[in-house]
């Protein structure tokens, strides 16, 4: 019981503490490609602390929902965080939700923020909410199919079991379908974390922004909570990518293996962050109506991954 509780606290601290670091890391890597120094690695922490100290200005059009949305979205992202293996596959709440539940908890976060965006009565909010829900409609089918591709490979949807199962399969796990599903999921990650070419996290230009438009009316502490929630979500999606597809090195409990696990995870996340930075640095933002093409690619790759697995099993 005590071990379980320790694991619970450990997991929470890890996701809350490391999420801003990942944001900083990607920013730093992007700056490298743009041949500039960029903000310090720990700038995201400073930003959050700064926002926490500020007062909030809230639109007078809003209702209680505007204040509830950051709370709900933050709580749902944290709840999802307890089901995603980071350093260890020993998750006290691993049974409570599988990969599908994690995806739907993210959807709950998105739903609440989209409603809050409409609550301000601003055109920006409406535009952002409309685009966000449009993009999520594009993402969802590809996401579920790539989840299916992974799940039928390993015979489970619970995340910790996926990791252990992939490890036990050894190098044979790296089948074509596994890699296809990985690429499909990587494209989804771009969309889910609001990065180029889907959304530009650095923009404040009304024609291009999606997520930023939704949270335009938030300020101060509320903004800090939302930003932290977004960072945690990004961290979790990266962790999914790392530990579903390349789980090697993850420890099975809170023991000596954890040190190796931390190193392995850091390398994986750094490589994925580098990939993301390369993608972001080499592509321009796409028009909103070209996104269906991108997501169809992801959908087709995921579908191929499913077909591959089914064909490979024979019968």
């Amino acid at each position: 019981m005590l071990v379980q509780f320790a694991l619970f606290i450990f997991q929470l601290l890890v996701i809350l503490a490391l999420a801003p670091l990942l944001s900083g890391l990607i920013k730093k890597l992007k700056s490298f490609f743009q041949i500039r120094k960029g903000p310090p690695l720990f700038q995201s922490y400073h930003d959050l602390f700064k926002l926490m100290r500020k007062d909030s200005v809230v639109s007078e059009n809003t209702s209680w929902l505007f204040n509830a949305a950051p709370v709900v979205s933050f709580a749902s992202v944290l709840a999802a965080g307890l089901m995603v293996p980071i350093f260890t596959t020993a998750l006290p709440f691993g049974f409570a939700g599988d990969l599908i539940a994690v995806v739907y908890l993210f959807a709950l976060a998105r739903f609440s923020i989209a409603l809050a965006a409409l609550d301000t009565g601003s055109s920006f909010g409406g535009m952002g909410a409309s685009r966000e829900m449009f993009i999520s409609s594009l993402v969802e089918p590809a996401m579920i199919l790539s989840i299916f591709a992974v799940a039928i490979n390993v015979g489970t949807t619970n995340l910790a079991s996926i990791s252990t199962e992939v490890i036990s399969q050894g190098m044979t796990a790296l089948s074509p379908s596994h890699l296809l599903a990985f690429v499909a999921f990587f494209i989804i990650t771009i969309a889910e974390t609001g990065r180029l070419p889907v959304d530009n996290p650095a923009t404040h230009l009304e024609l291009t922004m999606v997520h930023e438009a939704m949270i335009l009316e938030y300020s101060g502490k509320q903004l800090a909570v939302i930003e932290l929630g977004v960072m945690v979500k990004q961290f979790l999606v990266f962790a999914l990518l790392a530990n579903i597809f390349f789980p090697w090195g993850i420890s099975s409990g809170l023991d000596a293996g954890i040190a190796a696990s931390i190193i392995a995870f850091s390398i994986k996340i750094a490589v994925l962050g580098l990939c993301m930075a390369i993608v972001e640095s080499t592509t321009a933002k796409w028009r909103l109506f070209r996104l269906p093409d991108l997501m169809s690619i992801s959908l087709m790759l995921a579908f191929l991954a499913v077909v591959f697995t089914i064909i490979m099993r024979g019968g």
């Binding site: 926490m52 500020k54 007062d55 909030s56 200005v57 809230v58 639109s59 007078e60 059009n61 204040n67 950051p70 709370v71 301000t120 009565g121 601003s122 920006f124 335009l216 009316e217 101060g220 502490k221 509320q222 800090a224 909570v225």
Partner: peptide
Amino acid sequence: LLRSGITSKYETW
């Protein structure tokens, strides 16, 4: 986290 501090009302930007 949200409770402390002053929240002022203003029109939508």
